[in-house]
Write a protein that binds this DNA or RNA. Structure first.
Length: 198
DNA sequence: CCAGTGATCAGG
DNA sequence: CTGATCACTGGA
């Protein structure tokens, strides 16, 4: 399915205020939004297909369960701040801090799908299903992104409103890779997966 | 199933 | 300083 469309002036950056909501509703609302990555060889567009919410110090799955440390410090900033960390020595995880200042919540971006743009026609491309694959294709690293703002274009990574009609169905599951957290945190349905058609 | 790979943090 | 652990992935 292809649709006539050109990004161009249709880039409406989602304002910082959007990120002040709690991480669970933000995780849901980020689905279907467009992640823009501006690289030397051109802008690339991805639609967000999978997210996971982490909900502050009381959430035993959240990095902030141990309070403020050098790593988790950025999660205490206001919503819209980018939180990046390396896992298993290989994979850069991209998170968006949510909520007000000193509410250490975040949304992990776990999956994105490429939007192909060709002669003003758009179509869905390759799916990157997993946070490691997502960080790799977006060329995420800590130095360039950790502590920066996702609503600021100067990092060449930002999120815009979905500028065309989409069909989307959403599923929820428990979060992945957090068995150390124990109940009830392992059972919370805080992973959101979207199936998208354009 | 399991190895790879290095930041992070608690404990001496 | 040491050692265990880890919000993962790809290949037997």
């Amino acid at each position: 399915m292809k649709k006539n469309f050109s990004f161009g002036t249709n880039e409406i950056i989602i304002p910082q205020q959007f990120y002040l909501q709690n991480s669970i509703s933000l995780a849901k609302k980020l689905l279907g939004k467009i992640l823009v990555r501006n690289l030397p060889n051109g802008k690339q567009y991805f639609i967000i297909t999978e997210t996971e919410a982490y909900f502050g110090e009381k959430d035993k799955a959240c990095h902030c369960r141990k309070g403020k440390t050098p790593r988790t410090e950025v999660m205490y900033k206001q919503g819209g701040t980018i939180y990046v960390y390396l896992i298993y020595g290989m994979y850069w995880m991209l998170n968006i801090v949510s909520g007000k200042k000193n509410h250490p919540e975040a949304v992990l971006i776990r999956g994105i799908q490429k939007i192909n743009v060709e002669n003003n026609k758009i179509s869905l491309g390759k799916l990157y299903d997993g946070p490691g694959k997502t960080g790799k294709i977006l060329q995420i690293n800590k130095k360039d992104f950790n502590g920066k703002n996702i609503y600021d274009t100067s990092t060449n990574l930002y999120i815009i409103d979905t500028p065309f009609e989409i069909e989307m169905s959403i599923k929820r599951t428990p979060r992945i890779g957090i068995n150390y957290a124990g109940k009830p945190w392992t059972e919370k349905l805080w992973r959101f997966i979207a199936e998208i058609n354009i």
